[in-house]
Simulated scan of single mutants.
Amino acid sequence: MYRGYNLNLNWNPKCDDDFFEAGQELFLQYEETVKKTLKSYALKEGTLDGSKMQSNWFPQVKADIFISHSHRDEKRAIALAGWLYKVFGIKSFIDSCIWGYSNELLRLIDNKYCFQESSRTYNYNSRNYSTSHVHMMLSVALTMMIDQTECIFFLNTPNSISASSIIDKTESPWIYSEIAMTQMIRKKKPRRHISGIEKLEKGGKLNESELRIQYNIDLSHLVEIDINTLIDWKKDFTKSSSPNALDKLYELTQDNDRNLILG
């Protein structure tokens, strides 16, 4: 990861079917790579190969931007990814494209190892154990993706951040984890910069009776941008001869980034 942006996105690009379809096409390949079975992960000792399971169910893909967002903003995120690809040729990774895999994998494991035929219920302790494994696989996979992508866009909407608090809060454990990782993860300059060639909820809606947990999240390290920034970025890139769109975004937001660093 090199840069991070706190994107206040009032624009709703999902209204453009072309962008949404372009975004969907980028992620269809992920579904084709996942083998939805447990048979291939069985080891001789009667255990499951967790490392192999993680690499298959939560595959690492080549992407430039990691888009972190609320599950309720998934269509918006997919359309944004489509816009980024059609306008700049930039490939994005949408975290929710592998969230669903965690539930599917957990269901397979629980049905085989945690279901009790006698009571027709799931063993509580076994379920806790299986959930911890699958969620750790997902967490590690997401951290690896944040590390290898060049840039992160956090979609800051009322679905992801509580609007009733002065301090930013989220009820999504995944958003909490992802933003925390962007603070701790190593910052790497793109190779083209190092070489001196300077070219420029998750989770659905909860009922009041359901468990709700909030986390304070610190967004101060992310440069704030909005729809106007995206429009200016497109204009600047269109007028320039720069082969790399992200360098134009860094150039456009460098004053905000400098003010953020100086504090």
Rank of each mutant, 00 (worst) to 15 (best):
T229Y: 13
S195W: 15
N207W: 01
M145C: 05
M137F: 15
L211S: 07
A180E: 11
M136R: 08
G203E: 02
L249Y: 10
I167T: 08
D226L: 00
N123S: 09
L230A: 01
A245C: 06
A245K: 07
K239S: 10
K189P: 04
N228Q: 09
M144V: 06
R192M: 07
N128Y: 04
S195F: 10
R107T: 13
I185L: 00
N228V: 00
L246V: 12
D218L: 01
N207F: 03
S119N: 02
E201K: 02
Q214V: 06
T182H: 00
K169F: 01
M137P: 12
R107P: 04
S195D: 15
K202R: 12
K189M: 05
S102C: 03
P158C: 00
T143H: 02
K235A: 10
C151Q: 10
N216L: 03
E224V: 11
N216D: 08
K112C: 10
E171P: 07
K187R: 11
I227L: 02
E150I: 02
L246P: 14
K239G: 04
Y250P: 14
S241N: 15
A141H: 10
D232Q: 14
Y113D: 09
S220K: 08
M144I: 05
I185R: 00
V140F: 04
V223S: 13
R127V: 01
I179L: 08
S164D: 12
C151M: 13
T149R: 00
L230D: 05
N244R: 15
N159Y: 06
S139Y: 01
T229D: 15
W174G: 01
N128F: 06
S209H: 02
N207P: 04
M136F: 10
I213F: 01
L222W: 07
L246E: 12
Q148V: 05
S242A: 15
M184I: 02
K199T: 11
L108P: 07
N128L: 10
P243R: 10
D110Q: 13
I175C: 03
C114R: 14
E150H: 05
S242D: 15
I161F: 06
T143V: 01
I167K: 14
T121M: 07
K189G: 02
F154A: 03
T182L: 02
A141Y: 05
T157H: 04
I109P: 07
G204Q: 07
T238M: 12
E224W: 09
N103R: 10
F154Q: 03
Y250F: 14
S162M: 11
Y113M: 10
K202Q: 08
M137R: 06
M136S: 13
